[in-house]
Design a protein around this nucleic acid. Structure first.
Lengths: 155, 155
DNA sequence: TTGAGATTGCGACTCATTCTCAATCAGATA
DNA sequence: TATCTGATTGAGAATGAGTCGCAATCTCAA
């Protein structure tokens, strides 16, 4: 078991409470991003007395300690996911809401370019791409053959 | 005058009210991004009776009509700016809060790559880079010579 | 000038997130 | 293991961005 959720605390001296253990465990198991609300829903299913404030407080702590990544995926709410070794970015489909992860060497190149041209030392890069996934484009095409791939014609 | 703020409405049939005229004018003059709150502050200085709700409603309409770009620059609030011909991205300095605009051909390449690899049709791309600008790095260096360029060691 | 329909201001509302504070807990020490 | 101290927690109030409903007002086409 390489996750060190059991004995060694990754909390840098902050107390390793049952609430934090539960929340980190759920974040690990989430396989992707969750927002605070959803995390609270899942957590309170296992610990009734847990309060939303604790979820927010813990997420902020995890963020500070670099245990989770915070991102905005087009919604008002932030989403969180356990920090992984590989950097990746997100495609968000405006049609079905699906989030696709992807990696690209261009992100690294971009960061290098920014460092060279502006002397800017990048600590966090988030690329957010919105659009339509393949399935939604197909669906659109069969609904109205002429207006395909354009999307968002009316509400 | 090429701004067409006076006679021809860019509103696609939506009434060209004094409030909307004022807000668009302020957005034009803003030279960069403003958030809804700041826009309301500036607008209500010139029209006391203007309500915050109108600012939000107008910004949503402008967004829908493609007159402004909406982005999140690390804060909870959204920021808005008049849509310009040239695409650009933002660097946000964690030290001084400064926002630097930049352009890079890699963004376009990235979008092409995404289209090829995932068949994803990108309609909006936002790259958000956080880090430390040159000045803040210099300042940091002179404050603590060893911990330079790292940033965020403690609160 | 008129009338229909859209927009506005207002105030109430929603909803995410933070704050306050007393009770409780984690973890170091004896 | 018992004790102690400071950090964390739950509960609920507070904050603050953004939305909604409605009556009054405005825009604009006829």
């Amino acid at each position: 078991m390489s996750r060190n959720l059991n004995n060694v605390s990754p909390m840098h001296g902050h107390p390793w409470t049952s609430q934090r253990r539960l929340l980190l465990e759920l974040l690990h198991d989430a396989e992707g991003y969750v927002d605070a609300k959803e995390l609270y829903r899942r957590a309170s299913a296992r610990d009734e007395s847990l309060s939303p404030a604790t979820v927010y407080r813990s997420l902020n702590l995890f963020k500070e300690l670099g245990l989770v990544d915070e991102m905005r995926l087009g919604k008002v709410r932030c989403c969180y996911e356990i920090k992984r070794a590989s950097e990746h970015q997100h495609l968000v489909c405006q049609g079905c809401g699906k989030v696709i992860e992807f990696q690209s060497p261009y992100v690294r190149k971009l960061i290098q370019a920014v460092r060279h041209e502006y002397g800017f030392n990048v600590t966090k890069a988030q690329l957010y791409l919105e659009g339509y996934c393949l399935e939604c484009q197909e669906k659109e095409k069969s609904d109205s053959p002429c207006a395909a791939t354009q999307g968002k014609h009316h509400e």
